[in-house]
């Protein structure tokens, strides 16, 4: 039995552009977090950088999948069949899942100040093994990543209560929106017969829209940081 990852035909180009956009923003955040790490040598900055680097790489892999491995099923959709047989598309989709889950696990590891490397491996395996052995792996990725995003959202909410700063609130909202995208992708990717794909289209589009807003909020935060730094240098 195979599961199907699909993209509405009219949205393929836009989807690719958005994935490139998410890849770029996540990479920029990772870059600046690494820059801060070189100044502070604090573990949380290192893990934050690594987490976003893994997430950015996952979007790059997804972009690659969307650009080169989608095949037209009918006038309405492009699909990739993800089945039990070892194939390049399987591996690429699995790589996307692994990178995204590892990125989230790294952020969770940072957020909860975990110190044991075995816990990191355990969390990663708990996220990846069900996807590997599932017959609905394109669907299962989303609830699993939603659980990690839920805990990250709670972490950012706690940080906001501590700092009371708007910029921390913006990061909290961004992570809540990323959590919501996972919920939307669950509805978008359920293994439904083709005639019901029309209903999945809207969830797929809404998920991408919400994800765009989330990354725009993170980018807004980053731009403000750099602007304020420039202002302080001038004064």
């Amino acid at each position: 039995m195979s599961s199907i990852y699909f993209v509405p035909s009219w949205f393929v180009g836009t989807s690719a552009i958005l994935e490139f956009f998410f890849f770029t923003i996540a990479l920029i955040i990772s870059f600046y977090a690494n820059k801060i790490y070189t100044l502070t040598k604090q573990k949380e900055h290192k893990f934050f950088s690594i987490g976003f680097l893994l997430i950015s790489l996952s979007y790059l892999v997804l972009l690659f999948l969307n650009l080169f491995f989608l095949t037209k099923r009918n006038n309405r959709i492009f699909i990739v069949e993800i089945n039990q047989i070892i194939s390049l598309t399987n591996l690429i989709f699995f790589l996307y899942s692994v990178l995204f889950i590892m990125g989230l696990v790294t952020l969770v590891y940072m957020a909860f100040e975990l110190k044991n490397a075995k816990l990191y491996v355990l969390l990663t395996l708990l996220g990846i093994v069900p996807i590997l052995f599932s017959t609905s792996r394109n669907w299962l990725l989303y609830p699993i990543s939603a659980v990690f995003l839920l805990f990250l959202s709670i972490y950012f909410l706690e940080r906001y209560y501590e700092t009371g700063k708007t910029k921390t609130l913006i990061s909290f909202i961004a992570f809540v929106l990323l959590l919501l995208t996972r919920v939307e992708f669950v509805f978008a990717s359920k293994n439904l017969p083709f005639f019901l794909f029309e209903k999945c289209d809207m969830h797929f589009i809404i998920a991408h829209l919400i994800e765009s807003i989330a990354y725009l909020l993170l980018l807004f935060n980053l731009i403000n940081i750099l602007k304020n730094d420039k202002k302080k240098k001038q004064t």
């Binding site: 977090a33 801060i36 900055h45 950012f156 700063k165 921390t168 909290f172 935060n221």
Partner: peptide
């Protein structure tokens, strides 16, 4: 200042 701003913005 840059360190503080980044850490505050991203909850670090």
């Amino acid at each position: 200042n840059l360190i503080q701003e980044f850490s505050d913005s991203f909850g670090l």
